[in-house]
C-alpha cells in the first residue's frame, strides 16, 4: 500500500492560468471587433501585428532561455491585444511591432516570465513607444471614414524605421467634419471644450483603438467580474476614487476643472481600470491592499490629467500602482484569524 503525502491545497477549482487568460481574450474580442468596425483595416492590422510580435518575442525568449514553450498560456496574446487597444489607430505598424517586442522583453521576459513581472507588460510596451515616438503616439485619426474597410490610414503602412506618412491630406480628402485630431481630454485641457457624451459612447471621439466606448468596455468587464475572473474591487476602487476626486474638484474648484462624466468616459480610464490594473501578476492580493491600490491609481490619474503636462495619465498611474503593489501587500495584510492587535 502506498501513501501520498501532499502539501495543501488539496482541492483544485479546475481553473488554471490558460483558462482565465482565454476568457480575458473572449472579453476583449467585442472591443476589438468594435474598433475594427470604427477604424477598419488599420485597426485590424494593428491588432494582428502587435499580437504577432508579442507572440514572436515570447517564442524567441523561450528559445534563448531554454524554457518550455509558454505561447499556449495565452498571456502573450493578451499582452498583444491589450497593447494594440491602447495605441492610436493611425499608429505605424512597425512601431506597433516595436511596442510588442518591448512589452514582452522589457516587461516580462527580463523578469523571468509570467508571474514574475512587476509591471503590466502591455503598459511597459506602451510606455516605451510613448517615450520613443512621442509624436506618432499622439496623432489621432477620425473614425467611420467611408473607405475604411478597403484602404489603410496612410500612416499605418509607413516603411520600418521611417517617419509616419503624413495623414493630413487623407483626413482632408475624407471630409471629416469637425475633426480636430485631439482627444476629448486634450480638447478640455487646451480649449475647455466639453465633448458630447454621445460621441464618447458611440466611438466618434478621437482616441486609442480600444478606448472609444466606455459602455462597451464596462459590459465586457462585467462579464469577467460575473465569471469571477477578475477582482471587482480594483475597477471599483480606481473608477470610484477618480469619480470622487473629479466631483470634489468640480464642486469646490468650479469650471476650471472638467465635468465628472468627461473624466469617466474619456481616455483610457475604463480600459485601464478593467483590463490593465486588474492584471493578476501585478496587482496586490489582500483586500485592503487592493482597495488602496485602486485608490492610488485613480488619484494619480486625476493628478496627472489635471496638473501634469500630459493630457492622459492612466498608463503612468497604473505603472505607479504596480510598483507599489508588493509594498501594499506587505503593510496591509489581513489580520490573522483570532489574533489581536496590541
Amino acid at each position: 500500500m502506498s501513501m501520498q503525502l501532499r502539501a495543501s491545497p488539496h482541492l483544485h477549482s479546475g481553473r488554471d492560468v490558460p483558462t482565465i487568460m482565454r476568457h480575458v481574450v473572449y472579453a476583449l474580442l467585442p472591443i476589438c471587433a468594435f474598433s475594427v468596425w470604427q477604424y477598419g483595416l488599420s485597426s485590424l492590422a494593428l491588432i494582428v501585428t502587435v499580437t504577432l510580435s508579442c507572440l514572436a518575442a515570447e517564442r524567441i525568449s523561450n528559445k534563448l532561455s531554454g524554457t518550455v514553450n509558454t505561447l499556449s498560456d495565452w498571456s502573450a496574446t493578451i499582452t498583444g491585444v491589450l497593447l494594440a487597444l491602447t495605441l492610436p489607430p493611425a499608429f505605424p505598424l512597425w512601431m506597433g511591432a516595436v511596442a510588442g517586442f518591448a512589452a514582452v522583453w522589457l516587461g516580462k521576459s527580463l523578469f523571468g516570465g509570467l508571474g514574475h513581472n512587476p509591471f503590466n507588460p502591455a503598459l511597459v510596451g506602451r510606455a516605451f513607444v510613448q517615450a520613443a515616438f512621442p509624436t506618432a503616439i499622439t496623432t489621432w485619426a477620425p473614425a467611420f471614414t467611408a473607405h475604411r474597410f478597403t484602404e489603410f490610414i496612410p500612416s499605418s503602412l509607413t516603411l520600418p524605421l521611417m517617419q509616419p506618412n503624413d495623414i493630413s491630406s487623407w483626413v482632408a480628402s475624407n471630409m471629416v467634419d469637425g475633426f480636430t485630431g485631439a482627444t476629448p481630454l486634450a480638447r478640455w485641457k487646451f480649449e475647455h471644450f466639453v465633448y458630447p457624451v454621445q460621441d464618447m459612447i458611440t466611438g466618434a471621439a478621437s482616441a486609442s483603438t480600444g478606448e472609444t466606448s466606455a459602455l462597451l468596455l464596462m459590459v465586457c468587464g462585467l462579464y469577467l467580474i460575473a465569471r469571477k475572473f477578475m477582482d471587482w474591487r480594483i475597477p471599483v476602487a480606481v473608477v470610484g476614487s477618480a469619480l470622487i476626486l473629479a466631483l470634489a474638484f468640480r464642486v469646490f474648484g468650479g469650471d476650471e476643472y472638467p465635468p465628472a462624466h468627461l473624466v469617466l468616459l474619456s481616455g483610457g480610464l475604463m480600459l485601464g481600470a478593467l483590463f490593465m490594473a486588474t492584471d493578476m501578476a501585478t496587482s496586490p492580493v489582500s483586500p485592503r491592499a487592493v482597495w488602496a491600490y485602486g485608490a492610488i491609481i485613480g488619484t494619480v490619474t486625476i493628478m496627472i490629467r489635471y496638473f501634469g503636462g500630459l493630457t492622459e495619465g492612466v498608463m503612468y498611474a497604473i505603472l505607479f500602482g504596480n510598483a507599489l503593489a508588493p509594498l501594499l501587500d506587505k503593510y496591509l495584510q489581513p489580520n490573522v484569524f483570532g489574533a489581536r492587535k496590541k
Binding site: M95, F128, A131, A132, F133, P134, A136, T158, L159, L161, M162, Q163, P164
Partner: peptide, 9 residues
C-alpha cells in the same frame, strides 16, 4: 531624411 528618431534612446 525620413528616419524616425527613437527619442527614448
Amino acid at each position: 531624411q525620413n528616419f524616425q528618431p527613437w527619442v527614448v534612446m
